[in-house]
């Protein structure tokens, strides 16, 4: 069985996918092992998405076994058409030369066929495994209640949204459809994990910890278009420290529980994402800087209670594959995400 050039696998009739997958595995030799921990559905409406998503799946399949279901929809196409392909991503594992393989089913849904998304998903899931649904397209109403209620983890990337405020509102609506059962996984939030970890590291230091209540100013530098990410980080800090957002005379600021004023600014500067977070107060300044393309955070601590101190800690990668892998590997719920989002909702553009 060989795939045609430029096709994402072996073309199959949609009604025969299970049988063809079975044949695909039967035809492979005994050194191949099929592995799956979850169903990963990736839905996109961007032309070219199949190629880059196939590449992405291939890259992460070696570290996380799943059944991938790629769906490229073009609801605006004049003619209705539905096509499917199957393929496998294999990598060598261990010393025995055994190949571990994850399978991929790819769909292209044009015109009216795009409306069959729920059926396509339901009928091709690997049974009993969790369903992670990554929507690379904007959420739209009306929401399909049955589809979303089946989703265990809803993955999206708020960094890609043109209208974040309305999209966040729709994710909350999806959440309400499942009584909060679905876990919202914003890759924009996942990318912040290392930032949050590094900031928490700073305040493990006894002298720094004592400074937390004295913070009066926060400065975040981020790349143009990455404002939502910076806001989520700000929201996390404010929620964790019990600050409430205030708006007075066209100025936004936080008040802590004692009524102290905390100013903040988000500056857009050249760079790939967030490049600087600086927290300061009367006698201290702590900063966390990540140079462009840098693998490390550089922490600087200046405080009257301790000698000036600099440290370097790993910052990980923010490539989409690394971020998705981090999200799939970490699992669990994200209660702090909801808190962070609630804390800065009025500041979200669009």
């Amino acid at each position: 069985m060989e795939a045609a050039v430029n096709e994402p696998g072996l073309p199959v009739e949609i009604g025969r996918i299970d049988k063809e997958l079975g044949r695909l595995w039967e035809s492979s030799d005994d050194t191949k092992t099929r592995a799956s921990l979850l169903n990963l559905v990736i839905y996109s409406e961007e032309p070219g998405a199949i190629d880059c998503n196939t590449e992405l799946i291939s890259a992460i399949a070696s570290q996380h076994a799943f059944r991938a279901i790629l769906i490229l929809a073009n609801p605006g196409a004049a003619t209705s058409d539905a096509r499917a392909w199957i393929s496998a991503h294999c990598h060598l594992a261990g010393k025995g030369g055994r190949q571990i393989c994850s399978e991929q089913i790819t769909f292209r849904l044009d015109g009216e066929s795009a409306a069959s998304l729920p059926n396509i998903v339901f009928s091709h899931l690997d049974s009993d495994l969790p369903l992670c649904f990554w929507s690379q397209a904007d959420f739209r109403e009306p929401l399909d209640e049955q589809l979303w209620s089946w989703v265990d983890r809803l993955i999206f990337d708020s960094a890609m949204w043109k209208h974040p405020a309305s999209q966040f509102a729709l994710t909350k609506k999806i959440l309400s459809l499942t009584d909060g059962g679905t876990i919202l996984c914003d890759l924009n939030w996942t990318r912040l994990h290392r930032w949050r970890l590094a900031l928490a590291n700073i305040f493990d230091h006894s002298a720094a910890l004592a400074c937390l209540p004295g913070i009066t100013r926060i400065r975040i530098e981020c790349a143009p278009g990455k404002r939502v990410k910076a806001l989520l980080l700000l929201g996390w800090l404010s929620a964790r420290l019990g600050w409430s957002l205030q708006h007075l005379l066209s100025e936004n600021f936080f008040l802590d529980k004692a009524g102290k004023h905390i100013a903040f600014e988000i500056l857009e500067t050249a760079g790939p994402g967030i490049s600087l977070v600086e927290l300061s107060g009367e006698n201290f300044r702590f900063s966390l800087r990540r140079p462009e393309n840098g693998e490390f955070f550089h922490i600087s601590m200046q405080s009257r209670g301790i000698p000036d101190c600099t440290m370097t800690i790993g910052a990980g990668h923010e490539r989409v594959g690394d971020t998705l892998l981090a999200e799939l590997s970490r699992g669990g719920r994200h209660p702090l995400y909801a808190e962070a989002l609630d804390a800065i909702t009025p500041l979200i553009p669009g």
Partner: peptide, 18 residues
């Protein structure tokens, strides 16, 4: 120093399972 009443780092919560 400003306030030594905080004994637990509030930024740690939720960052990992351990």
């Amino acid at each position: 120093m400003l306030n030594s009443a905080i004994q637990i780092n509030p930024l740690r919560e939720g960052l990992g399972g351990r």
